[in-house]
């Protein structure tokens, strides 16, 4: 079949809401876009372990410690599902990790911000996982089958993370003066970076149209961001806290909250590697990988010895 014909059939399949599977024909750009997006998503899960991992040894109660460790571990699991989904598109996990470490592949900029107090654990669960969920709920219906199925598993855990994060903040909000201040401070620091998680404005977003046409995405960055603002602006009231945006107010005509302008300079700076923790995050991943090299080599050598022994016996 000529390529234009294949492309037509492909688009019809997508339009008919039939999932694209690994063995199906797909335009090269579709494959590349998915591979880039899924591997970037996988990297985000893994790098995302670091800011919260930073508080595991200091969690203020045994219950909180157990919850936090389990949460960070869930993110490792998400990384695994997503690497597997990305591998169906023809790149090995080793190669994806090499690309992360060389700086070729990106991960979500949100994880380049530091976690400074215990309240950051709550704020990340509530705001960062909360923002991630909106994106991921949409991706449960993305056109590439393996990605969509990975997202369904992940979404269940993410909404649990968000509730736990909110609950942790709720306890602080009802606590001592210092705890309430800690809670508000964390919200102040994480609010704007969370809004940036949805990416550039639709007018600035390069791949958006094609991704919508291929149903990789189903909502634009700005739509998702607005959904997030509407959700959080309500929830923050339950905490008795405020969002650090003087322009935030309900717009009856639009049926949405209006909100202030994101600092796009900061956004692009962090994307370019100038966030407060870009270097440390990447270096931590590289260190873990390099320090683990002898372990992985030994595991391979041992497995080879074992299979050689078994062959001898057989």
């Amino acid at each position: 079949m000529p390529v234009h014909h294949l492309e037509e059939t492909f688009q019809q399949t997508v339009d008919a809401e039939i999932k694209i599977e690994a063995k199906d024909w797909m335009p090269e750009a579709y494959r590349k876009t998915n591979l880039r997006q899924i591997s970037q998503h996988a990297h985000s899960e893994v790098v995302g372990m670091l800011p919260e991992g930073n508080w595991i040894t200091r969690a203020p109660s045994l219950k909180r410690k157990a919850i936090l460790i389990a949460k960070v571990q869930d993110e490792a699991g998400h990384g695994l599902y997503l690497y597997s989904a990305a591998e169906t598109l023809g790149m090995s996990r080793d190669q994806m990790i090499a690309d992360l470490h060389s700086g070729k592949a990106k991960y979500s900029s949100i994880f380049n911000y530091p976690t400074l107090t215990w309240a950051d654990m709550g704020a990340i669960g509530w705001l960062v996982d909360g923002a991630a969920i909106l994106n991921q709920v949409m991706l449960c219906r993305t056109s590439y089958g393996p990605y969509a199925r990975a997202m369904v598993r992940i979404c269940k855990e993410e909404s649990f993370h968000q509730r736990q994060g909110f609950e942790a903040l709720l306890v602080l909000s009802k606590g001592t003066q210092e705890q309430r201040a800690m809670c508000q401070d964390a919200i102040n620091r994480w609010w704007w970076p969370s809004l940036m998680m949805f990416g550039p404005r639709d007018s600035e977003s390069t791949n958006s149209d094609q991704s919508m046409k291929w149903k990789i995405k189903r909502k634009t960055n700005d739509e998702l961001r607005q959904n997030f603002v509407d959700m959080i602006a309500q929830q923050v009231k339950l905490l008795g806290m405020t969002l650090p945006d003087p322009d935030l107010k309900w717009n009856e005509a639009r049926g949405h909250y209006d909100f202030g302008e994101i600092n796009w300079d900061e956004f692009w700076n962090v994307v370019k590697g100038n966030g407060p923790c870009n270097r440390q995050r990447l270096q931590a991943r590289i260190n873990a990988h390099e320090e683990g090299a002898w372990v992985r080599e030994a595991a391979v050598a041992y497995a080879q010895k074992q299979s050689a022994k078994q062959k001898k016996v057989a």
Binding site: V46, M49, L50, G53, I56, T57, L62, K63, K65, A66, I69, A70, V72, Q73, A76, G77, G79, L80, Y83, A284, N287, A288, H289, E291, G292, A293, V295, R296
Partner: peptide
């Protein structure tokens, strides 16, 4: 052991040592 969380030599083993960590915390509690 919890110091390994996020720093293991390979993701599957990061998860495994963390499982043990969680079991030990559960027992301690």
């Amino acid at each position: 052991n919890s110091e390994w969380c996020g720093h293991g030599p390979i993701l599957e083993q990061d998860i495994a040592i963390t499982n043990i960590t969680l079991d030990l915390i559960g027992q301690a509690r």
